[in-house]
């Protein structure tokens, strides 16, 4: 489950912040860094990239391919089998996001067999991570992988669980009287909390901070993370609402394999 290879892809342009972020991740994980640039015009920046990497004292390889995120990058990933991909993406205003679905986002959405850090361009490092836990969907492997990577990179790691109370309220109100529905909801809440703690305990093996909020996770968790100054939100790459988590997040998203 260790991360032995990190691949940084610049789909359109070179982003200095993401390079520094990737260097810090690779160094923390004690691995070399491969960089794939998918825009020939960016070749002119090779010297700059090399000088940064040399000054950071890290093992690296740089590959430059013709523009083609889908074909070239997919082929490259298939041949190289990285354990972790890092891809920069611009922070998009939600109003603009409604009408815009960037290439990088589409690319990230289709992968499920490689962990990805989808880094906000303005982010130069990650220091305050939070891992989202869905006790009904997530596996011990996901929590372990996300925790191991983020622990090495950032040190302190926190977890978050969101109980979608409304969802149960509406479902149960059709079939149960109010008091009975409320009692079942409370039981479901306790059960979710217990399962989350058990999942974390199995994966991490020690006491950690678990934040508990209420509401639709795909909306509330990204908002909570952003509002509370976290700089990376980890989500299971197989989460059924992955697309929503990516689009609703204003910070870097870590998509870890289960």
């Amino acid at each position: 489950m260790d991360i032995n290879s990190v691949l940084l892809i610049f789909p359109k342009k070179f982003v200095e912040n993401t390079l520094y972020l990737a260097v810090s991740v690779a160094k923390s994980l004690n691995t070399d860094l491969k960089i794939l640039i998918l825009e020939r015009e960016e070749e002119i920046k090779r010297d700059k990239i090399e000088s940064i990497l040399n000054s950071e004292n890290i093992e690296y390889d740089i590959f430059i391919e013709k523009n083609g995120l889908k074909s070239k990058a997919t082929k490259f990933i298939e041949n190289y089998h990285p354990d972790l991909l890092i891809i920069p993406h611009e922070k998009i205003d939600p109003m603009v996001h409604i009408f815009k679905h960037p290439e990088a986002e589409k690319f990230v959405e289709k992968f499920e067999d490689v962990s990805i850090i989808f880094a906000i361009e303005s982010s130069r490092e990650i220091k305050k991570p939070i891992i989202y836990i869905d006790p009904n969907q997530d596996s011990v492997e996901y929590v372990k992988r996300a925790y191991n990577v983020l622990k090495k990179v950032c040190g302190n790691v926190e977890f978050i669980y969101s109980f979608h109370e409304e969802f149960y309220e509406y479902s149960l109100s059709k079939t149960h009287p109010d008091a009975e529905a409320r009692s079942i909801i409370n039981e479901l809440y306790e059960e979710g909390l217990r399962k989350s703690k058990e999942l974390i305990a199995k994966a991490v093996g020690k006491e950690v901070t678990l934040k508990v909020i209420k509401g639709d996770p795909k909306k509330e968790v990204p908002f909570f993370a952003h509002q509370n100054g976290y700089d990376i939100l980890s989500v299971n790459i197989e989460n059924e609402d992955k697309k929503s988590f990516i689009e609703n997040s204003q910070i870097t998203i870590g998509l870890f394999k289960g």
């Binding site: 409604i98 509401g215 909306k219 509330e220 908002f223 509002q227 697309k243 929503s244 689009e247 609703n248």
Partner: peptide, 9 residues
């Protein structure tokens, strides 16, 4: 700031 759901929007 506000929470939002781009897909639903």
């Amino acid at each position: 700031a506000s929470e939002f759901d781009v897909v639903l929007m």
